[in-house]
């Protein structure tokens, strides 16, 4: 009789321990939602340019006006000069556009354009879309920024 109790208790104890371990694993596992493609460098939609997009200084900061650099190269790797760039975007999950209207303000040479006036007012998934037109033609590219 006594030994039956003992096994039962041991079983219960082990089960509780297992449940505890599982709960800890479950609670601390990183959230692995796939999310959008976050690459900072990509070929434009019709393959005309290779675009990369980086903060001009430091990282992405929430709530501050920031400038970023959009670098445009041809597929062969030559810098794209004299491009006209229109910026748009928003937060696809919140149905709203950008809180500011960023613009390409300066050409810094070697295919680098300063995109000034960006502001990320909340955390989450932001999209920035560039319509680019240059001697080689017109094309678009979308960057996803998650913060």
């Amino acid at each position: 009789m006594a030994s039956l109790w003992r096994y039962l208790l041991a079983g219960l104890g082990l089960a509780a321990l297992l449940a505890g371990v599982l709960a800890i694993v479950y609670l601390t596992a990183p959230q692995t939602t796939p999310g959008p493609d976050r690459s900072r460098s990509k070929t434009t939609a019709n393959g005309l340019f290779v675009a990369s997009f980086q903060p001009e200084r430091g990282g992405v900061r929430q709530g501050e006006l920031q400038s970023w650099l959009l670098t445009l190269k041809t597929v062969k790797g030559d810098p794209v000069e004299g491009a006209a760039i229109a910026v748009s975007g928003g937060m696809p999950q919140h149905n709203h556009g950008l809180p500011t209207s960023p613009q390409a303000t300066d050409y810094l040479g070697e295919g680098r354009y300063r995109i000034d006036g960006l502001k990320f007012t909340m955390s989450g998934w932001w999209q920035l879309r560039f319509a680019i037109s240059a001697a080689a033609g017109s094309d678009t590219v979308v960057f996803n920024i998650v913060l």
Binding site: A2, W5, L9, G13, A16, A19, G20, L27
Partner: peptide
């Protein structure tokens, strides 16, 4: 020996109770 087995069980149940039904806990995020 029985007591030794019961003790961790009691502790686990108590922990579960504290975590589940007491005040809400916050994740690292």
């Amino acid at each position: 020996r029985r007591l030794l087995l019961v003790l961790p069980l009691v502790a686990l149940v108590a922990m579960a109770l504290l975590a589940g039904c007491g005040k809400p806990q916050f994740s690292d995020t």
